[in-house]
């Protein structure tokens, strides 16, 4: 296209020699060149080797003994407790993250303050810190012997470590970036004039947020929240340190899988793994759908 232009429009420099067409223009339409085929095969082959084959292996292993066995492995009291614990702690975390992540993103986008660049960089830190370290940090801070932990225990009777609150805290820490990072680009793109317009029309800041801003950013909040939820389902490192491995009390699904492998019950491990996989897959499909819907509306 670039090459065709000088011919159709009068050249600004009549004395200059004609511009040769770009090499890409020689490509004929209708026949896929060899190099493109190679690239595709490489990419898809890599994906299959790395992702699809192991996934298929786990799923087929989990379902090897039939659906009945799979189901009974999932619904064993210990397994079922691990699943519900995982789901509800992840849900609480996701709810908190949705609110606080939105707030953080808003502050980071709309306000100027000293050290903003530093805060912005800190947001990604949980992704870089080994999750085991996260667990250790929380134990140091909230452990029964630690100042904050013992105070909470004495004052409110609240146990953090080896209990669900610890799991939620650990999950909050490791999945903090997801909502913030999902929201930031959307807020940046969103025109400040929309909010200003609402103000001139008489809307209070809260009403403006609820009626003007929130509808525009809701899909991004939802996809960020779902991502953090999915991330939480599989969290292992931080939880094993913070919550330990107590069946029926603080054992989450991922930790349960480890327990099953250690007690030489590969079927149980595969079944739980398959279940987690299915859940994660469903969530990813939902996130993808939300993003598509947003793009479609923008177009």
């Amino acid at each position: 296209m670039m090459a065709a232009e000088p011919r159709t429009s009068p050249s600004p420099l009549p004395t200059s020699p004609p511009i040769p067409p770009a090499s890409g223009a020689r490509r004929r339409i209708g026949r896929v060149p060899f190099s493109v085929v190679v690239i595709r095969v490489l990419a898809l082959g890599y994906l299959a080797l790395l992702l699809v084959i192991p996934l298929a292996a786990v799923v087929s292993d989990g379902l090897r003994a039939g659906l009945g066995v799979f189901w009974s492995n999932i619904t064993r009291p210990v397994a079922w407790h691990a699943i519900t614990l995982t789901l509800w702690t992840a849900a609480v975390m996701a709810a908190i993250n949705a609110v606080m992540g939105t707030l953080t993103a808003y502050v980071l986008v709309r306000y100027e303050f000293r050290g903003k660049a530093l805060v912005n960089a800190l947001v990604d830190l949980p992704l870089a810190i080994p999750t085991l370290v996260t667990g250790v940090m929380l134990v140091i801070l909230y452990g029964p012997q630690a100042a904050v932990g013992s105070w909470l225990k004495a004052q409110w009777g609240l146990e953090i470590i080896f209990a669900p609150p610890g799991i939620i805290l650990a999950l909050l820490f490791v999945s903090f970036p997801f909502v913030v990072r999902a929201l930031q680009p959307v807020l940046l793109e969103l025109d400040m004039h929309q909010e200003e317009m609402a103000y001139t029309l008489g809307a209070s800041p809260w009403l403006t947020f609820r009626r003007v801003l929130l509808p525009a950013i809701a899909p991004a909040i939802a996809s960020g929240t779902l991502l953090s939820f999915a991330r939480a389902l599989g969290e292992f490192g931080a939880i094993i340190v913070v919550a330990g491995n107590f069946p029926m009390r603080s054992q989450t699904a991922a930790v349960y899988v480890l327990g099953e492998i250690e007690s030489e019950n590969p079927i149980g491990a595969s079944a739980m793994s398959t279940f987690l996989l299915a859940l994660a897959f469903g969530l990813m499909v939902a996130v993808d759908w939300l993003q598509r819907r947003r793009e479609a509306r923008h177009a």
Binding site: D191, H193, Q194, E196, M197, A198, T200, V212, A216, R297
Partner: peptide
């Protein structure tokens, strides 16, 4: 009453 150059209509 204010009208911006880009109109700032509420798209939703």
């Amino acid at each position: 009453g204010f009208v911006f150059q880009n109109y700032a209509l509420f798209r939703h």
